[in-house]
Design a protein around this nucleic acid. Sequence first.
DNA 1: GCCAATAGTAAGTAAACACTTACTATCTTA
DNA 2: TAAGATAGTAAGTGTTTACTTACTATTGGC
Lengths: 203, 203
Amino acid sequence: MEAVRPRRSSEARQSEIVQVVLALAGDSSPADITTARIAATMGLTQGALFRHFPTKEAIWLAVAEWIEETLLGAIEAASLTSDDPLQQLAAMFRAHVDFAATHPGAPRLIFNELQHPGDSPVKRRIRGLLGSYRGTLLQILKYAKVRKAIARDLNEEHAATLFIGAIQGLVMQSMLAGNLQDMQRAAEGVFAVYLSGLRGGTA
Amino acid sequence: MEAVRPRRSSEARQSEIVQVVLALAGDSSPADITTARIAATMGLTQGALFRHFPTKEAIWLAVAEWIEETLLGAIEAASLTSDDPLQQLAAMFRAHVDFAATHPGAPRLIFNELQHPGDSPVKRRIRGLLGSYRGTLLQILKYAKVRKAIARDLNEEHAATLFIGAIQGLVMQSMLAGNLQDMQRAAEGVFAVYLSGLRGGTA
DNA sequence: GCCAATAGTAAGTAAACACTTACTATCTTA
DNA sequence: TAAGATAGTAAGTGTTTACTTACTATTGGC
């Protein structure tokens, strides 16, 4: 019989904290995530957190980094599953929605961080993430145009904005319904509408 | 010569508070809007606020009510400017984007409130607002389908989600760029992509 | 098997928060 | 013009927040 051995390495605790924050953001507002709640969820005292992160902002930054790596990784992997640009977009869309369904806290944290004024390191990180994301989208859209898979007169910038908005709309819808399965089911249909917008029609 | 006479009726102060909150939300996170900041912006002491609202949550509720009335009013007015459903959608889109540009705090407050768990009166109000909004959209979309202005096989629910998402995407983009004029300029183009999605193509 | 490093605790701290209370000044109106 | 109502102030209250400090217990390397 062995008692719980709570002592773990700082590195392990750091990633544990990131995951706990992400989980807490799944069903509460980021503003309500206090160091006390994080510590309680982990079964630690509050002060123990500061052995692993110097400030609370450093925690947010680590979470932002995790989101950036994981989301961009998933997006990139998805875009590599096909040579057809439209199928690449479809795979990215699906991957992003799956990510949001698996980690519902992530889109909230992103949006929350964006609306802070000024230029904190966290916000810069999020901006970088969205910049990369948008860059990937634009690249695929431009390639799709060369391939004549989408309308000649389509504005890629606007198409990229609508792509991101489509996902944002799904997230909002799921926050209204409080239902994540619905989001994944609706995703396919919303993307279909988006896609037919890319192909163009009577403009 | 007359000194400032700061004393005003409670009714006047209430709407003043709502406007100040809305303005503060324009360049700071809702979580950072404290009663002290509101009062300071108005040139009052903090305690004076509680002569006009019993709690801070009552302030949020009043703001939510103002947003609901104003936004839904603008949307409805826009939808009445034409008989053509697609032009109604275009007018609604433009009206909503204009509203978001004039009151940048509003979409933030909406999103922020939605992500709180539970069922506060404020959240219920916001839910009602979005429900009405979506209802109006669905009605127009269904009418457009009857009129054969949009594709027969289009799913209206998904089209409504994408409509809201399109605006959300524009708002996010403007928070990234910190630029509101860009949003209004891009709005037209984004709506064009959306619209061609409604008309359908090779699905 | 000792010992330095370090993950943990418990109990602080100052600042910020929403809200209250006691009192004052200014309106309205009878 | 006296009086009741009320918008304002100034200085509180208790709670919560991120973060600190002094100390303890565990761990890994020599």
